[in-house]
Design a protein around this nucleic acid. Structure first.
Length: 599
RNA sequence: GGCCCCGUAGCUCAGCUGGAUAGAGCAAGAACCUUCUAAGUUCGAGGUCGCAGGUUCGAGUCCUGCCGGGGUCGCCA
């Protein structure tokens, strides 16, 4: 199954070969001058350069030799040597029919299927989901769906943050609260009262205390090592915190529409650590350094300048070595990350592991990846950090609520839902909402609209850059927003429902009107958008496509009556609407967005 | 100080291996609801692509330098 750009490229390549030119330059793509052409080929200029010919002359020769007339008439030569194509109505209609009849709405599968683990979300035992977790969850979920849809075998793993120093902090925090851990009954009673809210409150306090109080910090570090050595009651306390937090996090993820195949965490990699350390030792990679054990990952000559506390500047290796065993004997997050690679190689045998994690951890992952490759656990190329930027407030600084605190995910969703309810009530008052909507459906719509607004706002930005989180803007529901996309999907559903009620059947698509042409061309662009999103691990290409599709449908809707037209035209437009709905729904699903039936 | 990212319309952002007249949305202006859901459509306006050089037939895109913003630099994750 080929999209039109691929078909044109193939036909153009045949012409290039016939003329003795390098077919590499034959690529044809959508034109960025829609006033001049639908598709453009730029290769004549590059080929002319290579052959020492005049670009315009060569372009004319190529145009003259073009013989795929069923696909497109001979291209126009324009400017310095562009080839401008306009596909035939027949080719476009055929393509639209194929998309309509295809469950994948025109999207191709990858040629070579891979096994891929997507590590994302990264919830923390002691931190409830707040806006800071949004990007990791939303982007990761979308990347996972995109990879799976293109045919790869994919596992999404939450990689729960349940094992480091933070656990030691919580343990000594509870110890101090109870005046010791000896009283089993007091401890049991305490553990029964633990909630995620409690952990969220106690953790920042303990972390702050550890920064100021050296002895408290040392106790926490020892407690961490003890937990990892399997000591009691550390293990019991950890289990209680872990279970309570996991249950709460699962609820939050479910509310966001984020689902993992593996709910593994750092603690699950722990059993592999002792053997891994022995293995690193055997391979001669482990070195003693300042009481800790490290793996050096810098190549010869890779250094950086570093300023010490006393102001002197020294030259040190770069990247920093990976800290495998702390001076206290405990595992660090790099240790668990490395052991998690060993675990995944054993269990999933992945060709690729994607880490959808904040860009700020780029250095850390570089250390881990190099160490993994050095130890021969997996190829360096099989590990990729899919980093994303921070979410800032309207002041350009990391997002905070008006009161200065962190906005909890639930509260954020709640605010968006409330805004959606207001909008729905307005529509109801103006008589634009169906009369028979039950309270349950009303709530379901409000939730879907809220989630769509939040997710689309995030996914329409390129993941790598930071973006401004502006609640009011996302919830205005106008223009390029999630609710707009839902609205277009719902309008199509409404039309198709009416058609069905009147027993009107879709028929063969015949592209005639300019608005139909534009819509069909956009439908054809799905495969390209999907391929880009896949290659670059960047869902915003699909967000852009969803918006373009919704916009073109809306123009088509305005210019081309569907139900009120007749015969073959009506049947064709119904089919075109059906194809659009299918592809729009699919695209939204790849973004993790679900449209309601009505709104 | 080393390394990484960013700087595009008043605001928020796109711009795929370098290609033609740099695109969207919001805000501000004009026109469209007795007709398939106006959370909509159509039209106009808005730009020294941070600055200065360089490579190229051609640079927002590649190279160098500078300015501005952010991030990061072993016992937190």
């Amino acid at each position: 199954m080929k999209d039109l750009a691929s078909a044109l490229s193939a036909a153009n390549a045949a012409v290039f070969v016939k003329l003795g030119l390098d077919a590499r330059h034959a690529d044809v793509r959508r034109s960025d001058r829609p006033d001049l052409a639908e598709f453009q080929g730029n290769g004549a200029m590059a080929a002319a350069k290579a052959a020492g010919k005049k670009p315009q002359e060569l372009a004319s020769q190529i145009a003259a030799a073009w013989d795929a007339e069923a696909l497109a008439p001979k291209p126009q030569v324009a400017g310095p040597g562009f080839l401008n194509f306009r596909v035939t109505e027949g080719a476009l209609s055929d393509r639209a029919r194929v998309i309509m009849g295809d469950a994948r709405a025109g999207a191709a599968l990858v040629e070579r299927k891979r096994r891929v683990v997507v590590d994302y979300g990264g919830p923390n035992v002691a931190k409830g989901m707040h806006v800071g977790h949004l990007r990791a969850s939303i982007i990761g979920e979308s990347v996972k769906r995109i990879y799976r849809f293109r045919g790869d075998e994919v596992w999404g793993d939450a990689h729960f943050g349940d094992w480091g120093f933070q656990m030691g902090l919580m343990i000594v925090s509870i110890e101090d609260e109870l005046g010791g851990l000896a009283d089993k009954n007091a401890l049991d009673a305490k553990l029964k009262t633990i909630t995620l809210d409690y952990l969220e409150g106690a953790y920042p306090r303990a972390a702050a205390k550890a920064r100021e109080d050296v002895s408290f910090r040392d106790r926490a570090r020892k407690a961490t090592a003890a937990l990892q050595a399997g000591a009691e009651p550390h293990r019991t306390i950890w289990k209680a915190m872990h279970d309570v937090s996991m249950a709460a996090q699962k609820r939050d993820f479910a509310s966001l529409g984020v689902n993992f195949d593996l709910w593994l965490g750092e603690s699950d990699a722990d059993p592999l650590i002792p053997d891994m350390v022995k293995d690193l030792e055997a391979k001669g990679l482990l070195e003693e350094d300042q009481g800790a054990r490290i793996v050096r990952v810098a190549r010869p000559g890779e250094t950086k300048k570093k300023k010490l506390d006393d102001g002197t500047v020294i030259e040190v290796e770069s990247p920093d070595p990976l800290l495998v065993v702390s001076s206290e004997g405990s595992a660090m997050y790099g240790t668990t990350d490395l052991a998690t690679i060993v675990q995944r190689v054993r269990d999933q045998k992945p060709d690729l592991i994607l880490y959808v994690v904040d860009q700020r951890q780029a250095d850390h992952f570089e250390q881990v990846y190099r160490a993994a490759a050095k130890a021969d656990y997996i190829a360096r190329e099989a590990l990729e950090h899919v980093g994303f930027g921070t979410m800032n407030g309207t002041d350009g600084k990391p997002f905070k609520t008006r009161a200065g605190g962190v906005l909890k995910l639930n509260d954020l969703i709640g605010q968006a839902e409330e805004k959606a309810r207001e909008r729905l009530r307005e529509a109801e008052a103006e008589g634009r909402l169906a009369k028979d909507i039950s309270p349950a459906e009303f709530e379901d719509i409000a939730h879907k609209v809220a989630i769509a607004a939040i997710k689309f706002a995030d996914l329409s930005n390129f993941r790598g850059t930071s973006y401004v989180f502006d609640l009011d803007r996302f919830m205005s529901f106008e223009g390029k927003t999630g609710p707009y996309l839902l609205y277009q999907a719902v309008r199509i559903k409404s039309i198709l429902r009416k058609a069905k009620a009147e027993s009107l059947e879709p028929g063969a698509i015949e592209i005639a009107h300019e608005a139909e042409r534009a819509l069909a061309l956009t439908l054809d662009g799905f495969n390209h958008a999907l391929a880009l999103a896949y290659d670059k691990k960047a869902p915003h290409f699909l967000a852009e496509h969803a918006y373009a599709l919704a916009r073109e449908f809306s123009a088509f809707y305005d210019h081309c009556p569907i139900l009120t037209s007749e015969g073959a035209v009506r049947a064709s437009r119904l089919a075109l609407s059906g194809a659009t709905l299918k592809q729009l729904t699919l695209t939204l699903d790849l973004l993790g967005i679900e449209p309601p039936e009505r709104m």
